[in-house]
Computed example of a mutant assay.
Amino acid sequence: MIRLVIVDDDILIRESLNIIIGIDPNIEVVAILENGKECIDYLCKNQVDIVLLDMRMPIMTGEEVLEEISKRKINVKVLILTTFDEERLISSAIKHKTSGYLLKSSKPDKIISGIKSVHLGNGVFESEIVSKLVISNQNEENKYKDNNLDIYGLTDREKDIVKLISKGLSNKEISSEVFLSEGTVKNHITSILSKMNLKHRTQIAIEYLSRSEN
């Protein structure tokens, strides 16, 4: 059973999510909270698997919640669910190693499948959000520099693979580009994830694209 907390300042949204998600027999909504402070207080006293978190809230924002979870080393996965797709908020979510970022316009079954996917250790990122950063990358392509990746201690080959991941290439396509087997590419990606302290392939792309904005 997945223990889930819903955090949103809009009572209609959080109650609707509670009803929709609560129908699934594999998910238990253990709390519905209206601001970030309530969320942190609850997490400090209770075992939770996933927080479904809004980014814009009074008293304590989603960004501040992510900072507190990181600072207090609370063992919980976070799936962002918001109406906002601002690049700054996306970058903040990635910085704090969230497991996913979905928009509230997503269909209920997509939100539920996203919760289950995050629980299994996968990343769930709205295609619109990734596309937003990719478009920004294409519009300012001449601003990209390899030293955006130097802080991670990546090899030249790993840097090449990061760039190809950011373009949306599959492992098979990457292997053709760099003339390596798919198995070797997978090994490189495992190394990249470790060095960049990320959990998911999609986070590699988003982290790289978001850093280009700095």
Score class of each variant (00 low, 15 high):
Asn75Tyr: 05
Val130Asn: 12
Thr83Gln: 13
Gln138Met: 14
Asn46Cys: 10
Asn187Ala: 09
Lys172His: 12
Lys163Gln: 10
Phe179Val: 15
Lys186Ile: 11
Val7Leu: 14
Asp8Gln: 09
Val134Cys: 06
Leu66Lys: 12
Gln47Phe: 15
Leu89Glu: 06
Gly114Ala: 10
Tyr144Ala: 04
Gly36Cys: 00
Ser99Trp: 02
Lys37Glu: 08
Glu34Phe: 11
Gly36Asn: 08
Gly36Phe: 00
Leu52Ala: 10
Ile74His: 03
Gln203Ile: 06
Asp146Gln: 08
Arg88Thr: 10
Asn187Ser: 09
Leu133Asn: 00
Ser166Val: 00
Glu87Asp: 12
Lys167His: 01
Ile206Lys: 00
Arg211Leu: 12
Ile23Gln: 15
Val134Met: 08
Glu67Ala: 08
Lys95Ser: 08
Thr184Leu: 06
Met57Thr: 01
Met57Gln: 02
Leu89Phe: 07
Glu67Arg: 15
Ile23Glu: 13
Ser136Pro: 10
Ser91Met: 05
Ile6Pro: 00
Asn122Ser: 14
His200Pro: 00
Leu52Lys: 00
Asn139Ala: 10
Lys73Arg: 11
Ser136Thr: 11
Leu169Tyr: 11
Leu12Phe: 13
Ser117Asp: 00
Lys77Ser: 04
Lys167Glu: 13
Tyr101His: 10
Glu34Trp: 05
Val48Lys: 05
Leu89Ile: 03
Glu28Asp: 13
Val124Glu: 01
Phe125Lys: 05
Ser176Gln: 15
Ser91Gln: 11
Lys95Val: 12
